[in-house]
Amino acid sequence: MDQDRRSFLTGAGKFIMLTGAASLAWDAVLNGTPDQAPNYDATAHWWAMTIDVDRCIGSGNCVRACKIENNVPDEPGMFRTWVERYQIRPDDPEHPIVDSPNGGHDGFAPIKDLPPGTKVFFVPKMCNHCVHSPCVQVCPVGATFESPDGVVLVDKSRCLGCRYCVQACPYGCRYIDPRTHTVDKCTLCYHRITQGLTTACAEACPTGARRLADLKSPKDPVHEFMRTHKVHVLKPQLATRPKVYYNALDGAVR
């Protein structure tokens, strides 16, 4: 037994007093490298995103920026974010026509022979970073998780590639990376937002339709946005508590 009473009490006290991030930072301080202590306080943020459907013009800038920023494979069907175009025609409003050529990566072509009175709009889709994520619940090895600041992330070094989470996600936001055979998904640009930048998709959006939101920050304009707009989330009936808030979301969107 290499642990005496003093070290046990010190360890236990440290664990109780400084849980989580603080204890990791404290380790760095004790090792004489306080500059390497994580200075980003995950408990001070609660990340979300707002998407204004009315402002989306289907340029595909977000899809392209996301693929570049996050090194997403350039293969069809593999997206961290994509854009769908909905057409609700007056003769058959029950069955909207949805298209998303290459996820909107190369933009959309104008619709030919559009019947008058058709409602057309673009809906950007992405991981909803649910508070109660079904994908996290099904992972057998703890490779996907909800971070303390509300982002659903994947630990590629632990992922087995079992695809259980791909099936569990009700929003279809996950894919298997063919290079690593592990699952991949939107990280809400975790490497950017923890350094004070916005996400790549929000940065590239030419109309400001997508905006990163920190729900814990009282100064964030998201609170004003939520007050002044009629926001909705996708599939609220599943009780996953998604955190991507859509303004002007049509009921036809699934």
Binding site: I68, E69, H191, A200
Partner: peptide, 8 residues
């Protein structure tokens, strides 16, 4: 997750 290089 934070280690990825930034492009934009």
């Amino acid at each position: 997750a934070r280690a990825l290089p930034i492009s934009f």
